[in-house]
Amino acid sequence: MKILVPVKRVIDYNVKARVKADGSGMELANVKMAMNPFDEIAVEEAVRLKEAGVASEIVAVSCGEAKCQEQLRQALALGADRALLVETTVELQPLAVAKLLKAIVDREAPRLVILGKQAIDDDANQTGQMLAALLDWPQATFASKVAVRGEEIEVTREIDGGLETLAMTLPAVVTTDLRLNEPRYATLPNIMKAKKKPLETLTPAELGVDVAPRLATLKVEEPPARKAGVKVASVAELVDKLRHEAKVIP
């Protein structure tokens, strides 16, 4: 079984993003970039399915500028077999990415697509669901457990208030949640080997996909700041303040 794993290049999880002074977007110049953390979990899950003998090949794909090659090389170092970059400098919104991924699925015919539930830059949480819709495939979002049994995949999902389990016939789209697995680190020998693995570059035009944005970002502002309050010296003072000043406890 072939697995397709889409990965996104985003601001590093540990970097505090700042709004650009002109309000046109976020400041990304000279900011450390990385693979979206949920996509790392997706790569890890695919590698585990390959190690378990369920998957035969893992293809990583990324859409965006040429520098996305860094994230694809990371996916290759973690265990993907080859990579595809759909290169464009156009701002890609989730619907456009879903259409590009559908074109890749039509070409590659994977039985499973695993990707992160959301990217930590636009926080949209849409691409996997949109891809499943365009393909008319089943979807299981927010996965915390995945088990492939023949032509069926059983996925446990993190929903508000607990867990839900779905069984779906393959092919299917799965989006990853935090607890699905703990991604490994790439070893130095694997990083070296990844440099020799195939990485093919395509363009949206070659795939016949119109990626023009549907949403215009008019401006980006700082969120309203919350001012720091006071430090209290004791539990007694805290209780007194909550009771008489904030009036939030009886």
Partner: peptide, 16 residues
């Protein structure tokens, strides 16, 4: 809508 973990608030216009 908030983006980047709420570090930015984007104003977006839909053409759909």
């Amino acid at each position: 809508r908030p983006i980047y973990a709420g570090n930015g608030i984007a104003t977006v216009q839909s053409r759909d």
